[in-house]
Amino acid sequence: MKKRSPVPWLTRAFGLLLAFVSAAPFFSLLAKSFFPAQGGVSLEYYYRVFLASPQYLLRFWKSLGLCLGIVAGQLLISIPAAYGFAKCRFPGRNTLLFLLMLFLVLPLQVTLAPNYILLDTLGLINTYWALALPAAFAPLGAFLLTHGFRDVNDDILNAARLDGCSLFRLLTKILLPMNTGIVVCVALLSFLDSWNMVEQPIAYLREFRQYPISTALAFVPPGSPALQLVCCVLVAIPPLFLFACFSRELAEGIVLAEVK
């Protein structure tokens, strides 16, 4: 009888351990929000966050709007930029692409100060533009899309041009449909990046009322930890929604970009 290798069991065990370690904080958060320190099940803190005052939900919607704006900006900027890098020939193209990749690997803390000086010069400090503009110009989208667009055969584009296809139609009817996975992936990564931002609002905004919910979460009164946990549940809703609806596109986009 053939003896089964112990390796699959080991990998399964590690997989389970990883899943448990990753999911445990979330389930613990959910459980503790329903079971505060004293007594049994309580919806008191859910009432306080969702019904007693609009400040949590208004901040939530404001942050959601800001992130959707950033995603729109990121797509508007990165799609033409990626087309330029992938399909246009101009002097210094490779150097620029190299610089783009370099900015991609720079830690956020390195760019925070130069961005602050630039935004201050533009008079944008203490406005939402200070959060939206640097995020919309983040190089990740252009980088991923450049790789996607490069893989599209030039003959297809030339044929379309011969048929009188404008640049706009070329992008919307050929390049984007052929790279839907990457576009969705860029939108998702950009959304998650801006939804989770903490340092930028603290650096660029002076007033607490302007902070997006991800940053304001840290300032929830420390006397009521259950309240903080319910706020965390609220903050987790959009990423959960994106993961539930677009998990396949997210994985496909990352794989496609790597393969291409």
Partner: peptide
């Protein structure tokens, strides 16, 4: 399901302003 969730969040937002 998420549309319902977001709609309920919208309802809560509208209600909470008045409740406060």
């Amino acid at each position: 399901l998420f549309i319902l969730l977001f709609w309920l969040l919208g309802v809560c937002t509208v209600l909470s302003g008045k409740i406060e």
